[in-house]
Simulated assay, not measured.
Amino acid sequence: MMQKIRQIIAAIVFVLSTLYICGISGFLPEWLNPKILVEIQLIPAILSASFVTVIALIALTFIIGRVYCSAICPLGIFQDLVMRLSKWIKKKRKIKRAKPHYAQANNVLRYSILLLTALFLLFGSTYLVLLLDPYSIFGRFSAAILTPIITFVNNIFASVGNAAGNYTFNFKEYHLPTFAVLSTVILTIGTIVYLDIKYNRLWCNTLCPVGTALGLASRLSLFRITINNDKCVDCKACARTCKSNVIDHLNDYKVDHSRCVSCFNCIDSCKKDALSLSVIKKRATND
């Protein structure tokens, strides 16, 4: 159930974010203003000094983990779509399912990137922040790649609608980006897609400073994925479906909560109800 709710929220966020960035959202009702989806992104909130939003996102992470990365961040949602497409293609080609895999955390690289990004920001430079910020990356991708496609479709609707006397859609002009911009965007997205298909959420869990920063809070989140070893039959379904490779099936199925993106795929994959999203209680220590 939680997986379905997360997927519905992610779909709404992704569609509205894309339409807003591409400038095709005028047909939406006034109460459905997609601009708010920009305002609830972490890095834009930090750069605009929207501390209420920053505190709210951190509080959300303390409560339920890095759900931001799988339901609010459009680049994270885009990676999920890439992974689903990749699995669908493999299924059609009857490629054998991948074996369950647990990836060790590269903490040196993760925290080095986070520290370097924070230092750039502290000294007044937003270059590295905007270069690695997932929302900025998705914005550049949408502007350079998705906007021409969506604008073309919009103009078809506008042409048909105007001919019928319906002016819901308006014609939009679009200027192609320079070769330098286009090649940079393709290289960046190509790298992320490759890492996504080859190593699952490697970008989010190692190279993205937002994911690493939220990972610090998610270590202490109130609700976390827990595994009941008494119910577990060692089928490894949860480890196989984990998009972040953070379930250590070789070590009592321990979960690295700092890299878990709270997608809840593992919960739905378990046929024995051994996994749940539960309040973590501190274990009593013996004297």
Rank of each mutant, 00 (worst) to 15 (best):
F62E: 01
A237Q: 10
V279T: 10
F171G: 06
N170M: 09
K87V: 13
I24L: 11
G23S: 06
L60Q: 09
I21K: 03
F179V: 13
N33W: 10
R97E: 15
A213S: 11
N286K: 13
I150M: 00
I55R: 00
L114N: 11
I197S: 07
A217F: 14
K94H: 13
S112R: 04
I149L: 04
A118K: 00
R283N: 08
I225N: 09
Q3G: 03
K4P: 02
P209H: 06
K198S: 07
Q7E: 12
T241V: 07
Q79M: 12
T184C: 14
L220G: 02
V193I: 06
G211N: 11
V153C: 06
I12E: 10
A59S: 03
N205W: 09
T126Y: 08
D252I: 05
M1F: 04
I40M: 02
L122W: 09
L19I: 06
N251K: 09
P148V: 08
K90I: 07
H257K: 15
I36T: 14
L75T: 12
I186D: 09
N229E: 15
I227F: 01
I55W: 00
C73A: 00
H249S: 09
F157A: 13
N228C: 05
L121W: 05
H249E: 13
L119T: 11
V193A: 11
N229K: 14
Q7K: 12
K198C: 00
P29N: 03
I150E: 05
K4F: 12
I9H: 04
I247H: 07
S17R: 04
G76R: 12
N155W: 01
I267W: 06
L16H: 08
P100V: 03
S48I: 02
L115D: 05
P34W: 14
I189E: 14
Y111L: 11
K94L: 11
A237N: 10
P148T: 10
C238D: 07
I64A: 14
L195C: 09
L115S: 08
W88A: 15
L182E: 09
A180L: 15
A213N: 04
N154R: 00
D248Q: 03
T206N: 08
V54Y: 01
V82L: 03
I21S: 02
